[in-house]
Design a protein around this nucleic acid. Sequence first.
DNA 1: GCCGTTTTCGGCCCGACTGTTTTCAGTCG
Length: 586
Amino acid sequence: MDKDRVAEVLSEIGVLLELKGENPFKSRAYANAARAIQTLEEPIEKLVAENRLGEIKGVGEGLQEKITILVQTGRLPYYEELKASIPAGLVEMLSIPSLGPKKIKALHDRLGISTIEELEAACKAGKVAGLDGFGEKSQAKILEGIEYRRQYASRHLLSAALEVAEPILAELRARKDVTRCDVAGSVRRYKEVIGDVDFIVSSEDADAVIECFVTRPGVMSVSAKGSTKASVILPGGIQADIRVVSDREYPFALAYFTGSKEHNIVMRQRAIQRGLRLNEYGLFRSQVETRDPNLCLPCATESDIYAALGLDYIPPELREDKGEFAAAEGHALPRLIELKDIRGSLHNHSNWSDGLNSIAQIASTMSKRGFEYWAITDHSKSSFQANGLDAKRLKQQVEEIKRVNESLAEKGLKFRLLCGTEVDVLRDGKLDFDDEVLAGLEIVIASLHVPAGSEAENTRRLVKAAENPFVHIIGHPTGRLLLEREPYPVNIHAVIDACAETGTWLELNCSPYRLDLDWRLWPQAKSKGVKCAIGPDAHRNEQADWLRLGAGVARKGWLTADDVVNTLDLASLRKALAVKRNRGKR
DNA sequence: GCCGTTTTCGGCCCGACTGTTTTCAGTCG
C-alpha cells in the first residue's frame, strides 16, 4: 500500500469522525497526518520497516500503530468498522452547500436521512423546516444546494475562472472608490482546477463596491451579501466572492485569502512564535483578539508581511506549504519563469491535421505577436480521427514550411517556423513514423493517444519512446483531461527517470484541459535534470494565449527560465535539439 | 489524536455571515 492510499484512508477517517460528532481536533489530527504523509519524500513502506513513522510531524503513537497495520496488512479494521457504521450518503451530503457534519448528523439522527434523495424528499415534504436549528430558509437552501450540485460540479477550469474574473477585476479597478483590487484564492495561486473566484478590494465605501458587485450584469444569483463581503453565482455556475477592507488591511486580506489554507496555518504559527497574531486584518503585537491599528505592524505590501515573519517574499504560485518556507527562510527561492521569457512554442497544429489555420497564417500571426519561432507538429497517420499525416504528406508539409520560411527571410523577419511532428506512440512502443522520417524533422514530440489498460504497458511504451534518439519531447505525459478523464495508468516516476537518462524533455502541455505534466511533479523532474517544454498544443492561433497558463503552472512547479527549453533563442534551441541526436550517434 | 523553550494537560487558526435564535451554533473560506 503506497503513501497516497494511506493518506486517502486517513483523510477519510477524519471525515467519518466529523460525521460521528467526534472531537473535531481528533478529526483534524487525521487530516493533518494524511497531508504530511502525502508529501513524504520516501516510500511509506520504508519508514514502516525502519520504524521511523514517528519522525513525521503530526504522526504520534496512535497513528503510528494504525499506519503500520494498514501498510503491513493492506487493511485497517478500525477504518472498516468506522466506515460500516456511517451510511455513504452522509459523506456525499457534505458536498451540499450549507450542510456540514453537525447538520447532517442531526438530519440522520432525527429524521433517519441517509441519502441525498431521502434528504430531497424530506425537504419537499417540509419535514426539515420543523427540526430544531433548521427553518424554512435552511430547508429551501438545502433544496437549492441539491439542485446546484446536480447542475454544476462546483469545480471549474482555471481558464474559465480567469475568463470571468478579468473583466470584473478591470471594472473594479476602474472605480474611483476602489484603491487596490486583486484576485486572490486558488486562481491567484494558479491551481489547475478551482472552486470559486475571490476578489479583495480596498475601499472607503464598501457598500457601494458591494452593491456594484452583486448587481453587475452576468450575476445569476446572490447567495450572500453583508457589509464587508458578498457571494454571487456567475455564468457557468462559478461562485465569486468579494471582500472589501480598508487600505491598511489590504495586504493582510490579500495574503489571507490567497491561501492556501495550509500555507496560512504555517504563517499564523510563525506569527505566534514571534509573539504576534496574524489574521486578515493585520499582524498584531498582541496575544488576544484586537483590531487596534496602533498594535499592527506596518505592512504596505505582502512582502512586508513576509519580511516581518523572517521570510523572503513567496510568490502566490508557491504558497502550498510544499517547501516554500524553508526556501524563503534561507533566501533560496528560485527566480521563477515569467511569460515574457517564453520565445516560442514547440507543440502546435495546423490545418494539415486537425488545426484551424494554414501554415502561412500561423507564421504571420506568431511573427506579429513577437515570437521567435513556432513549431508545426501535426498528428501522425495513426491519429486518423485528427487527419494525421502519412510520410508522403509530411514531406510535402516540410516543403511548404521551407517556402514560408524563405519568404519570411526575404522580408527580413527573424521569425521562423520549425518542422516537426507529434508522432503517435503505438501499441508496442514503436512510433508511427520510421526513424528515417523522423530524422528529416527538426523537432519530434512523442505522445500516447491510445493508452493500454495496464500501468506496466503504458510505462514501457513511454520509456521506449524516450529512448528513441529522434524523440525530443514526451507530449502530455499522463494524458489527463481535467474534470473529464483521469490520467492513464502510468509509472510517471519511471518515465521521468527515462527522460533524465536519455536527455529527453517532458512537456508541460498548457492546454487548459490538460496542464500535464502536473505541477506537483515538476520539482522531482527538475531535480533529476529533466528540462521542460511548455506547449499550448494550439489548434488555432488565439490558443497561443494558453502559454500564459503554461508559465503560471511552470511557476507553480518551481521552474525557472533555465528549466524551460522554449525560453532559448532560436540558435540555442537548435543546438539543444541537436544534443540528443548526437548522443544517439555515439 | 498530536504536541510542548510558560505546558505531559489543555490547548489545537480565526472571523464573517446566516438562520434561528433572543445570545448563538453551524458553516464557510
